[in-house]
Design a protein around this nucleic acid. Structure first.
Lengths: 146, 146
DNA sequence: ACCATTAGGACTAAAATGGTCCACTATGCT
DNA sequence: AGCATAGTGGACCATTTTAGTCCTAATGGT
């Protein structure tokens, strides 16, 4: 169910590693070595994370990447969005859908609500928490009644 | 993020349609017509839902499918699991993972916690709620602290 | 007997994913 | 100035997943 891509997972590992020394510059190579991930893959991920604003990059010799914000200010959604793109749970939630049922279905709308519920839950989980034997926020889904 | 497959969405539509008359038998063909989904696809989905125990099936002439349980007893996770299989958020959460990082990563474990949080949230959303302009449970993630 | 209907697969086409590589640009060091 | 080190951007490919189709049983009502 609800698979998260491997790359996102790897991305988290990278960020988690960097979170141990926020502010410090890490080269792609170093991260690849430390995390045991393939160098080209790491490079690709760092680019994506940089583009998304999660990392600051310094080019040239002795360059590298550093967390752009404090670990506590980087959420799980940020990471997922950065790597997988802001895809939604269902097709119809993306906006540019060509759903031919739509009219009578009425279900799509509800999935979207659930989707946004999950998003906000994931927003509450930060990199700081992901790195330690954390206390995971529990999904309750009880509120949001309107 | 966290994509749900189209088929799962279709499956929900089918179930939602059937939920309007719980207990009644619907043939695959009828459902295909009513939901505007391709007949072969509908057939495939109904088989999957049947196998998962969400639907009871009656073979032979005038046969069809009927909800196996009351709409309020069929949850969103049930549907997702039935169609997509009980896949987990991350690779390492599946059990048979060949994660080479594992040791130092420590992140995987946390994703699993989040995963189970989402699962239980999704378990709280039933087909009955999915069919109407429902009140979606809100994901809070605040508890589960241990 | 016959027809409607589910059951169980095999199979295909298209798309997404994971992963690699290269040519280019920026920056520090000597 | 020149070289080595790093990020940037994008093309590219192989593999896997996904969506979707179809065919051949099995089953049960009429």
């Amino acid at each position: 169910m609800l698979r998260m891509s491997k790359l996102t997972d790897y991305g988290t590992v990278l960020l988690a590693y960097m979170a141990r020394e926020p502010g410090r510059l890490f080269s792609a190579q170093e991260l690849a070595e430390r995390t045991q991930l393939a160098a080209p893959t790491v490079a690709k991920l760092l680019k994506a994370l940089g583009k998304a604003g999660l990392l600051d990059s310094q080019r040239g010799a002795r360059g590298g990447y550093a967390l752009a914000r404090a670990p506590a200010d980087i959420s799980a959604v940020d990471i997922i969005d950065a790597i997988e793109g802001p895809v939604a749970l269902t097709e119809c939630a993306t906006g540019h859908s060509t759903c031919n049922i739509e009219a009578g279905c009425g279900v799509g709308h509800n999935w979207q609500r659930i989707n946004s519920g999950i998003r906000s839950a994931l927003k509450a989980v930060t990199l700081a928490e992901l790195t330690r034997p954390m206390a995971v926020p529990l999904i309750d889904l009880r509120a949001q009644r309107r």
